[in-house]
Design a protein around this nucleic acid. Structure first.
Lengths: 232, 232
DNA sequence: CGGCATTTTGAGAAGCATCAACTATTGTGG
DNA sequence: CCACAATAGTTGATGCTTCTCAAAATGCCG
């Protein structure tokens, strides 16, 4: 059940443990439990379940989805290490989204009732930082979705993902793509075919080099330019 | 400078003061300051300013906007009484958006450093509820933006706004529209012309009755149906 | 009442969705 | 380890919706 402690976790610099000292990390472990590894397709939580915990991604990647009344699903977002999961459950104690592992992944969880204790342990700031980041990310994605040109939406997504990877200490140009093209197209508000064409076009013009599970950004500046003002 | 205290505030049932007793409300006032009324166009905060406070809308309405590198602006969201403002500043202590009053409005503010105290006063749950609501709203709007049909996006927005109004104890069918059509179109990821046509079409078919600053929903169910599965 | 900003309406063009067929990849069982 | 089946992704042609550009009309403020 227990994963390695925070001290040896590669994510501990960007999660709730950010800035804590060795001793404090041990104390934190009383509130924050790291879950067992989950494999692709497993659910962290499902829409409709009571929401007593929030989660921080420790390794791997997750997606969050909502299901409309008529049954079609929408991919709300992708979540990489150090990012929060399950905030929407805070509204009324019930999850309104579902969270699914995209690959073998782990997540740490803390009870919403323990938030005051997290604060007294010195993790309050980190928690707020994560909430703020989530909000910024939402804003960025909305901005992206509001652009009508498909090229701009894809470019914007890649630029944003690059920034998130850099914050993790990873390369901002060699981007992991653990999600399916179908999921990504859904998330970006376009059809699978359209996304495929855009990626193909980007590849042919040398902007990126795409494989199924990774996209290497060859021309970051050109991509950023596309993201910024291809539209209007 | 001081507005009337929480006890007489019509919003106190849905904001940080939710569920607090008379005496606790007085204590809350030490952390939460209500600002002077702002008139249309005034800024609560601007992108780039240090973010030491978060805000809760008390009356009126605000919009939040971001400005791209190339100068064009995007309307992130509209904020009505009881809704949080300024969360994005938590990420790194600097606001990344700007918040602007859409009409004569007031907002209460609390310092991010005072969050532990808010907790001890019994407002922790309310704060988390508001954060959760914000997250839900973001998800809903993303879902909306990802729909390709303009009709569905407008219908979805109206349905969502109706729910927010109901939570305030207001009518869910007579919706205030303090924002300009330009702002709304921008927020919904379409052109002004397209929005105008959609509203005109909805009006002609009897779904809604629109005036500049208010939209009355005549056929809530038909509108909801449009929002759900006009698309795919 | 007049001027200005906002909104509505119109015609044409570009882009994406849709439908359909084809290709590649993954995973499974022999 | 290979063959095959199922899934995932690519490519192509067509029609519809929205964007764009342009002009008129409405409402608002002084």
């Amino acid at each position: 059940m227990e994963s390695p402690p925070c001290q040896v976790c590669p994510t501990h610099r960007v999660c709730l443990a950010a800035g804590l000292e060795h001793r404090a990390l041990t104390a934190l472990a009383e509130c924050v439990l790291s879950g067992a590894p989950m494999s692709r397709g497993e659910y962290v939580y499902r829409a409709g379940e009571p929401a007593e915990h929030c989660f921080v991604v420790r390794s791997g990647a997750y997606k969050t989805i909502v299901e409309s009344a008529n049954g079609d699903v929408h991919v709300i977002g992708f979540h990489f290490p150090g990012e929060l999961l399950g905030l929407e459950g805070l509204a009324d104690g019930v999850h309104r989204e579902s969270a699914v592992a995209l690959e073998t992944s782990t997540a740490c969880r803390f009870a919403v009732d323990d938030v005051p204790e997290l604060w007294s342990m010195g993790s309050g700031r980190s928690l707020m930082r994560l909430v703020g980041r989530r909000e910024q990310q939402n804003a960025l994605h909305q901005l992206n979705l509001s652009r009508t040109a498909a090229d701009a939406r894809v470019a914007g997504f890649l630029v944003g993902l690059g920034r998130r990877m850099q914050r993790l200490g990873c390369s901002g140009t060699s981007l992991p793509m653990p999600m399916s093209r179908t999921d990504l197209a859904n998330h970006l508000g376009m059809t699978l075919e359209c996304l495929s064409r855009v990626i193909g076009r980007f590849g042919r013009s040398g902007l990126i080099a795409a494989s199924r599970s990774r996209i290497v950004v060859e021309e970051p500046e050109q991509l950023a330019a596309l993201a910024a003002h291809l539209d209007r």
